Amino acid sequence: MLGCVLYGQGDLRVEEVPAPVPAAGEAVVDIRYGGVCGSDLHYWREGGVGDFLLREPMVLGHEVVGTVAGYGPRASGPEPGAPVAVHPATPCGRCPECLGGRRQVCRDIRYLGSAARLPHVQGGFAARIAVPAKQLRALPDGLGLRAAALAEPLAVAVHAVRRLGPVDGRHVLVTGAGPIGCLVVAAAKAAGAARVTATDLLPEALRYAGVAGADVCVRADDPADPGWPAEVDAAVEASGAASGLDACLRLVLRGGSVVQLGMPTGGRSAFAASLVVSKEIELRGSFRFDGEFDESLALLAREPGIEELISAVVPVGSAEDAFTLATDRARACKVLLEFAG
């Protein structure tokens, strides 16, 4: 069967990989779609994500959906043939973070397509994969596999909005209108935000932010843009750029909350700490998700328009073309790989 295997920086190959044999407690899933994530692009272009460096060939991908093919010993779940989404995380359940209810920052987590540990955790960009059966999620009625492929990145966005605190009736700023930023817009509106302002450098990215529900879209490099708000109640920085965080800190009201979701390039970023002090800003990080995965599936079923953020579906045999397209934010928002017809 075909899989997308990364051998090193810039060395992505679509090749035959062994069919999985499920262990006890595992399910086998025939993958239909896989979303190309920013972390997949970092592995491909740079050979790593932050401190997670590629040290052996690894199947990429963690945003995957498909149909149940079967189960290993002592495993059960949705019946064979049922459409499912795959929760990509397996927390350890033993560390202080897991025991404290913050499994998304588990210190010993296993995550599909991650080089954080050795051997690496192989990912989901393959025609058939085996995963713990407890990671399968049956799709809500009316939700198709194509739209369900957005569940993982939408869960990241839902978690970030939750980290803001209550947003009902409030004005939320989102800096960075890439796929995650656009999904943050959708998640904020779904959580009751009265107004969402999105900023980005690219007109096409801002167009997708509008599709996601942004009330106002602002060119981040144009201080004279009339869409800039005088003040906002809360803000999510989704670009990873220092200028994005600076805008959030400047525009959030005193005592407001700012969530840093975008990963700063190089791992370090200067920021206006004096504003955090003088305005008593609540500055929080946001990393991955936990139960929000199930919430995102329900949200996708309720809000079918979110699927419009999918800008291209590319056959797995042209995976490198899909990755190249996904890096071009002037042409694409969310790009999916298709593994079966």
Rank of each mutant, 00 (worst) to 15 (best):
E152A: 08
P132F: 14
L99G: 07
I180E: 03
R103A: 15
L164P: 03
L145I: 12
H120V: 06
V131Y: 06
A115F: 00
I180N: 01
L99C: 09
D141F: 15
A177F: 06
P119K: 02
A149M: 11
A127M: 11
G100R: 02
P132S: 12
H120D: 13
L136K: 09
R110C: 07
V121A: 06
A147L: 12
A126F: 12
G144Y: 10
A149L: 10
V161R: 07
C106W: 11
A126Y: 13
P179H: 06
V156M: 02
P119C: 08
Y111C: 00
H171D: 08
R170K: 15
S114W: 00
A115I: 00
A155L: 06
G169W: 15
T175A: 12
P119D: 13
L154R: 04
L99W: 06
V105S: 01
A115K: 00
P119H: 02
A133K: 05
R128G: 02
L99P: 01
Q135D: 15
G100S: 11
A138W: 06
L118A: 13
G142P: 08
A149P: 01
V174N: 08
A127E: 15
G169E: 13
A148W: 14
V158C: 09
L112H: 04
R163Y: 07
G123T: 02
A115R: 00
A148F: 13
G176Y: 07
V172R: 07
V105H: 00
P140D: 12
L143C: 03
L173R: 03
L173V: 05
L154T: 03
